[in-house]
Design a protein around this nucleic acid. Sequence first.
DNA 1: GTCTATATGGGGATAGAC
DNA 2: GTCTATCCCCATATAGAC
Lengths: 205, 205
Amino acid sequence: MLSTMTTDSATGRDRSASTRERLLDAAVEAFATSGFAGTTTRDIASRAGMSPAAVYVHHATKEDLLFEISRRGHRSAVQIIEKASQSSPDPVEQVRNMVAEFSRWHAVNSRVGRIVQYEFDALTPEHRAEIAEYRRAIEALMRDALEAGVEAGTMTVSDAKGTALALLSLSIDLVRWYHPSGATTPDEIASLHGDLALRMVGAAA
Amino acid sequence: MLSTMTTDSATGRDRSASTRERLLDAAVEAFATSGFAGTTTRDIASRAGMSPAAVYVHHATKEDLLFEISRRGHRSAVQIIEKASQSSPDPVEQVRNMVAEFSRWHAVNSRVGRIVQYEFDALTPEHRAEIAEYRRAIEALMRDALEAGVEAGTMTVSDAKGTALALLSLSIDLVRWYHPSGATTPDEIASLHGDLALRMVGAAA
DNA sequence: GTCTATATGGGGATAGAC
DNA sequence: GTCTATCCCCATATAGAC
């Protein structure tokens, strides 16, 4: 079927549920709810409506499930930041868009976001090394925009590295408390955080 | 001995290591490193130089250890925020101090901070209810300062609730990546975050 | 208050039938 | 590719000696 080829832009996941993908979805729910160490493979299997043994036909280990989720999540996040960094020739607008869209991504994908941000230490050293690359790329893109803005004279930033981390903190920490059923929408968070970012870099209207 | 009465201001913990306190210190290290679910009582016992059974002479369950750590940590954090909120009659200075000192607290106590911020869901419902009160108090103090500043006309804040959460995110998220052995000092983080907070509320110099 | 030993249950992962 | 059954290890917590 052609429909099995469509993929979700935020997660890179097949929308039609092959067994492998259904297990990944179940693992996302389980890891986001109970954490990696607090999740049993029996829990994942039962969320996917399968027996415990079926998990291992599609994924070698529990940690492989985590790595696949973390890798897709990080790749999606890098794409969001890259696109925002290319959205305007103006570094000020780049920073606004990066923070707004990165915040929106964490709100819309808050369950994957929790896993991406909080389960880094649960990966094997080899897997952690690959994920660390994605994180360095994200930090570098933010720092580059700040340095370009300072160079252009449209921002006032005394500590580009520290300010880049602060802007990322603003965009990330919401996964700690955000719930889709709450009153705040991803649009509202994106707009507020984008405005706060402009102020933080000394470029507010 | 008199020295057994001295307590650490940040954690409320006895500095001279009674067995009960040594176990709490060991649990902080273990929970901060491996998470609550990823920590075994054997790990805690061995870090404290004791047998697994000795843990239960001093603490009823593993979750009781987590609750005691979380309660002390939250109470310490509330005190820091309260003191900063009373440090000046000027709401602008209050906000600067609250963000600077709350950020400093998370840097200095980054291991306890991780547990405080990330292991809330591992508490029993009863314990979670008590901890939730401390969190509400912290958010209310920040929101009150923002509303006072808007009232006084010295801040420009369109969304006090969302901005309060953003200021707390800035102060908290650093526990995700901060390491005492890194290049950045708690003083530097406090200073930078305090300055960023002024800009975020539209009160920068 | 500490230990060794253990009760009791659950966890990741595999074997082998269908 | 799914199941049932199970291996083997480890977890929390307790029993009882010292």
